[in-house]
């Protein structure tokens, strides 16, 4: 096997077709997974002995938090690939990630506040985990603001890609903040390997993580299609796609 598969990812019409073919499958599986996981987490899982039913917030909070970080990492890698190899599709992919990432960072913060109030007695504290997640939201805003502020698409790609790559330093800070500093926040939920979580509580969470990843795949592929159409509107493949 050569590098042909890699070059295909750099081809806008190939990616456009890939998105049209696979986004519905990713989206359908994600919807099914989320519904089953919600039923498992809200109805089948027993209440926590300390947190009672408040612990059920974990089924939307932890997968959103995972996405907020995974999307940023994806965006930074795509931006780096775009910078190094000057691949247009990579820049388009990074741009497609940002709004989704910003939304799930906001959901992480919102559900975290709603969980913090009954458990810690406060919606917000300037705690390392909470503060670094808030910084992540500002990084997404900065990335999108920078893109919107620069008229020339190539310059916007380059400048925003540098910001995305530099900002990736925040991802391990968020991830390990609970280990490095004293934090109100509980340590990361251990799901694989040795775990003290009951299986009835654990499987809906595992399924939700998987379904959220599929969901991101679907929504990102659809947004990528919009990015490609905007950038390539003079290309002959766009004409063929729109006529066909």
């Amino acid at each position: 096997m050569g590098w042909a598969w890699f070059h295909r990812f750099g081809s806008p019409p190939w990616i456009y077709g890939f998105s049209r073919r696979w986004a519905p499958w990713f989206g359908g599986l994600a919807a099914l997974g989320i519904l089953v996981a919600l039923y498992g987490g809200l109805v089948l899982a027993p209440a926590d002995y300390q947190q009672k039913d408040a612990f059920r917030i974990v089924y939307v909070h932890a997968p959103s938090a995972m996405l907020s970080l995974a999307i940023y990492a994806t965006m930074a890698i795509a931006a780096a690939v775009g910078l190094i190899w000057r691949i247009k599709v990579a820049h388009a992919a990074a741009a497609a990630c940002a709004p989704i990432g910003a939304w799930f960072t906001a959901v992480t913060l919102g559900t975290g506040m709603l969980w913090g109030k009954p458990m810690w007695g406060t919606y917000w504290a300037w705690d390392p985990r909470l503060t670094s997640e808030l910084v992540l939201l500002f990084l997404y805003f900065g990335y999108m603001g920078l893109r919107a502020a620069i008229e020339d698409p190539q310059k916007a790609d380059k400048a925003s890609a540098v910001l995305a790559v530099v900002g990736v330093v925040n991802v391990p800070i968020i991830r390990f903040s609970v280990d490095w500093w004293n934090s109100l926040h509980q340590p990361a939920t251990r799901l694989l390997g040795e775990s003290d979580m009951d299986w009835a509580m654990k499987w809906p969470l595992l399924l939700m993580f998987l379904a959220f990843m599929l969901y991101f795949g679907a929504v990102m592929l659809v947004r990528l299609r919009a990015e490609l159409l905007r950038r390539e509107r003079n290309a002959s493949w766009v004409r063929e796609v729109l006529r066909g």
Binding site: L42, A54, V60, V107, L114, V219, V222, A226, L229, L242
Partner: peptide, 28 residues
């Protein structure tokens, strides 16, 4: 606390699908 959390998450899931599809429709 539980129901607003769920509403926020499910709302964001649905909204992002709608926003992405609208972006494609506008670009087309």
């Amino acid at each position: 606390y539980v129901w607003p959390s769920l509403a926020l998450a499910v709302g964001a899931l649905l909204l992002n699908v709608w926003l992405a599809r609208r972006a494609v429709a506008l670009a087309e």
